[in-house]
Design a protein around this nucleic acid. Structure first.
Length: 281
DNA sequence: CACCATGTTCCTTG
DNA sequence: CCAAGGAACATGGT
């Protein structure tokens, strides 16, 4: 479920709930999740630590902790992978089937649930170093974006997924941003004009901001099932992200601008959706 | 049975 | 050395 807006929504939701909470114990149920940190080491280092803060970088979550037996702050890097979500839950009910990591906070559990186990919770911070600028950072200028694009002959759609170019654009919003900017997903990155780079960066910011404002792509909602629990809900009408996305997953359906049928193509083994009429160049 | 799925990393190929 | 494409990871849904 993670595109960057989901991560941002997680962070805003969890930050006030976790701040100041002390971890009694940690149980890693899926060994893979803490890679490359050994699961037993992860459990040991975090037992007794206190949550100080939570922030986001690209699609990563950064948990700042104060360890029990050391003054040195500790950072845990989280990633939701494809199907991860994090929430607090009461300790009465059963743990979910795909609970990857469970933090015992005393009154409640903090749970990292991840059906496909592509996500991570680790002490290894190295993935952060390779990330490019934050798309919503005002200091990230269209000119800088354009300079980066000029270095690559890759198609612009594929290039947008490169987290060292911009940190946080995923497969859904790459298609959405190109649709809004009216740029062909097949255009080589180094052939965008400065004007197109400006349009594209603006479109990226718009789609991400819209989604964050709407509470994320996947109708992720904070509901009062257990205090502070995060759950998906599906309102039952068509596909649950259909109203918010203008081109993604709409193959064969009419373009919202010109009625031309939306086309699905494969680029770098991922689906791309676009309007062959609006996105000619 | 087939193919698809919001992400990242590794391997092969050129 | 780099760029680009594809497979792998794991568990589903349709």
């Amino acid at each position: 479920m993670p595109e960057m807006p989901e991560v941002e929504v997680h962070v805003r939701h969890l930050r006030p709930l976790l701040r100041g909470k002390t971890i009694r114990s940690v149980k890693v149920s899926r060994e893979r999740t803490t890679r490359p940190t050994p699961p037993r080491e992860f459990e040991k280092v975090l037992a007794g630590a206190k949550f100080k803060d939570l922030s986001r970088r690209g699609k990563y979550l950064l948990f700042e902790l104060q360890p029990k037996n050391s003054k040195k702050p500790l950072t845990v890097l989280g990633h939701l992978g494809m199907t991860g979500r994090m929430y607090l839950a009461g300790k009465n009910g059963e743990l979910p089937r795909h609970a990857a990591v469970v933090f015992d906070l005393g009154d409640r559990n903090f749970i990292f649930e991840d059906w496909r186990y592509f996500g991570r919770m680790t002490l290894d911070l190295s993935p952060i170093e390779k990330l490019g600028p934050e798309p919503l950072d005002k200091n990230f200028s269209p000119e800088l974006f354009w300079e980066s694009l000029k270095k690559s002959r890759q198609s612009i759609k594929v290039k947008l997924l490169d987290q060292s170019l911009v940190a946080g654009v995923g497969n859904i919003y790459a298609s959405e941003a190109l649709f809004r900017a009216k740029i062909s997903p097949k255009l080589p990155a180094n052939r965008l004009t400065l004007a197109q780079a400006k349009e594209l960066l603006r479109a990226i910011r718009d789609v991400l901001n819209d989604s964050i404002k709407a509470g994320s792509t996947f109708s992720l909602k904070a509901i009062e099932g257990g205090p502070g629990a995060l759950f998906y809900f599906d309102d039952g009408s068509e596909s649950y992200y259909e109203r918010r996305l203008r081109v993604y997953d709409r193959a064969g359906k009419p373009c919202l601008n010109c009625k031309t049928k939306i086309v699905r193509i494969t680029q770098a083994a991922r689906s791309t959706y676009f309007c062959p009429s609006c996105q000619r160049k």
